[in-house]
Amino acid sequence: MAVEKKLRIGVIGCGRIAQAHLAAIENLKDEADLIATADADEKRAREAKQRFGARFFTSRYKDILNHAEIDAVIITLPNHLHHPIALQAAMAKKHILVEKPIALNTKQALEMVDEAKRNGMTLMVGQSRRFSDAVFDLQKHIPEIGKLFRIQISFLVNFPSPPTDWWKRSEEAGGLVILLQGSHSIDSILTWTKKMPRQVCAFSSRQNTQWEGEDEADILLSFDQGELASMHLSLSTSPEIHEAILVGTKGVMRLTEYSTGKPFRFGYHLDLNGKRIYSAEQTPSNYTLQLREFIDAIRGSRTPIASGEEVLSTMRVLDAVRLSEREKRVVSIEES
C-alpha cells in the first residue's frame, strides 16, 4: 500500500526510548503526522500527547490498532511485547516500525515477518545504529581496507540503576545486555561482513543486582574463511566506550560513538588508517534518518533497510549466543 500523503502514525509505548521516536516524528512533521500515543500508564500517554502534539492519547493500544486513519505504528514496548503487539498490528493492516530486538527469539520474529507479509504490511526493525552519516561513510570505505578478517566492537555504557522498570525482569527483557546491546552490535557485524558466522561462543555475568539478567557479556563469532568478530558489552562501565574496529588486509577503520549530552543524540569520529575522515554530531538524529527510511519505503512500496526479514539473521545469531551462554560451549549457527 503506497502512501503519498503524510504517514499517519500511532506510537504504542511512551517510555524511555519512545521519546527518541516521538522527537523523530516531530522532526519530520512535513512527512509524518502523530495521530495518537498509547501507554498502559495513562499519565505517560497524556504527557507524550501534550509534548509532541498528538491528536489523542489512550491507555489501550487497541484504540490505535482499530483507528481507521492510522497508517502505521511504532512499537516501543518491553522486549517481550514486541511479538504479540506486532502480530495484532499486522492483522489490523498497520505498517510497523518495532524497536530492537525484533523479538525474544527467531521463532517469534519469523511469525512477525510472515504476518506482515500475509497482510501486505511493511515491517522494519529499529536498528538505529545503522542510521548515521558516519556509518554510511564507513560502509563506503570498507573496500579500501581490503578483505575484512577481524571486527571488534566495544559497547560499554553505564546504567547505575534501571532506567525503566522492565529492565529489572529477565523474562521481559529476554535476559538483558545481550538483547539490548548485542542486537545492535551483531546487526552491525552482519551488515559489514555480509555473511553469517559459523560458530558462536558467549560468556556473561552480572555486576548489578538491581536486575535479574546479565549486564556484562563477551561474544565471539567465527566465519567460514577464518574471519573473527568480537563484542564486549557492558552496562557498568564509566566513562563509557563505544567503538568499532574493522581490520582488513589493506588497513584499519575505527568508528567511535559518543554522547552529545542530549537524550539519544550521538556524535561520531571515523578514522581510516590513522587519518580522521569524519567527525561530527549526527544531525538529524539517527532516529530521524531511521523514520525517514520507514516512510520512504512505504511510499515507494519497497523493502526498507533493516526489514524484519533481513533482521531475522541477527535474531538467529542472538539465539545461538543465548544457547552458548546457557550451555557454556561453542555453538554452531545451524543449532539456532
Rank of each mutant, 00 (worst) to 15 (best):
A2H: 01
I9P: 05
V11Q: 02
A20H: 06
A24G: 05
I25K: 09
I25Y: 12
N27C: 10
A48Q: 04
F56P: 04
K62F: 15
N66T: 01
I75V: 14
P78D: 12
H80E: 06
L97G: 00
P101F: 10
I102L: 09
N105V: 09
E111I: 08
E115N: 07
T122E: 05
S132I: 03
Q139E: 13
Q139P: 02
I151L: 12
F159Y: 15
F159G: 11
P162R: 11
T164P: 07
D165F: 13
W166L: 07
E171W: 10
E172R: 10
L176V: 01
Q181F: 15
S183L: 00
M196E: 12
R198H: 04
F203A: 11
S204I: 15
Q207M: 14
Q207R: 15
Q207I: 12
T209K: 15
E212A: 08
D215L: 07
E216I: 10
D218I: 15
F223S: 09
Q225Y: 14
E227H: 12
L233A: 06
H242K: 12
E243I: 02
I245S: 02
T249E: 14
T249D: 13
G251V: 09
L255W: 05
S259D: 03
F264Y: 08
F266I: 14
G267W: 03
R276V: 00
Y287S: 06
L289P: 09
L291K: 07
F294T: 03
I305C: 07
A306E: 07
R316L: 06
L318R: 00
L323C: 08
K328I: 07
V331R: 00
S336H: 01
